[in-house]
């Protein structure tokens, strides 16, 4: 019996890259492209009533920001894996996408077999974090302490272990090396990274609510 296929949506405005990604994905026996588009509006409309297992989303779309689609899908479909399609050296935007709800990212220049491998890794629960992103996360959490006005559970800080995992990743260690260093299992490292992703997203949402309530936008900050 064949393994069930995972459906993938490709949202990318560069025709050549989209075509290559679709081709790479369709070739893989476990993956199939369920939807592709170059436009934000079109995608939002489609995702209103449809879903996929994995969303590949470019950040710069002709009619809007990809992070809007990411946030929408994260809210609609909490189980969906969302990957930012990024060029290298664009870590700031990747971090913003993670805060919008992305759980992984993919470089546009990645070779065909690594595209599928990254998607499958993500589905298996392994979100990637580059050293630069790891360092940016540490800095962001450090420099941006939890706003006191928000309920503690809403804006979680990183645990000591999670920070240690990130510090290992900053130095270029692989997940396995991090696990060895901290004397924990590889899967535990993956779990930590997943939870870091989630916390970033929750934090940024909490921050947004906090900012909104600070700006006096009615209703948003209230519990009523």
């Amino acid at each position: 019996m064949r393994a069930p296929k995972f459906t993938v949506a490709v949202i990318e405005d560069d025709e050549a890259i989209r075509a290559r990604l679709i081709a790479d994905i369709n070739v893989h026996e476990q993956l199939t492209v369920g939807f592709d588009s170059a436009f934000l509006s079109e995608s939002l409309e489609w995702f209103n009533s449809n879903s996929v297992d994995v969303l590949l989303c470019d950040l710069g779309l002709p009619d809007g920001r990809g992070s809007e689609l990411i946030a929408f899908c994260r809210a609609q479909y909490p189980e969906m894996e969302i990957m930012v399609v990024s060029i290298f050296g664009d870590e700031k935007n990747v971090l913003n996408a993670i805060e919008a709800g992305a759980t992984g990212y993919l470089l546009k220049t990645e070779s065909s077999d690594r595209v599928c491998q990254s998607i499958l890794d993500l589905l298996a629960g392994g979100s990637p974090i580059s050293p630069t992103i790891a360092r940016m996360i540490i800095k962001r959490v450090e420099s941006d302490p939890r706003p006191s006005a928000i309920d503690q559970a809403d804006v979680p800080n990183l645990s000591k272990r999670e920070t240690e995992v990130l510090q290992g990743l900053v130095t270029g260690m692989s997940y396995q090396e991090v696990a060895d260093r901290l004397s924990i299992k590889l899967d535990t490292v993956r779990t930590y990274i997943k939870s870091i992703y989630q916390k970033l997203e929750v934090r940024s949402r909490g921050q947004a609510v906090y900012q909104a309530s600070r700006l006096g936008i009615a209703g948003l900050g209230d519990d009523k």
Partner: peptide, 28 residues
């Protein structure tokens, strides 16, 4: 080209992160 971008875009050009990125890129 990646090296050039890493050398430019790395947060504050921190040596540890720079070396980390080098290893990260070298892996494949």
């Amino acid at each position: 080209l990646r090296l050039m971008i890493d050398s430019l875009d790395n947060e504050e050009n921190d040596l540890v992160t720079l070396l980390g990125m080098f290893r990260y890129r070298a892996n494949p």
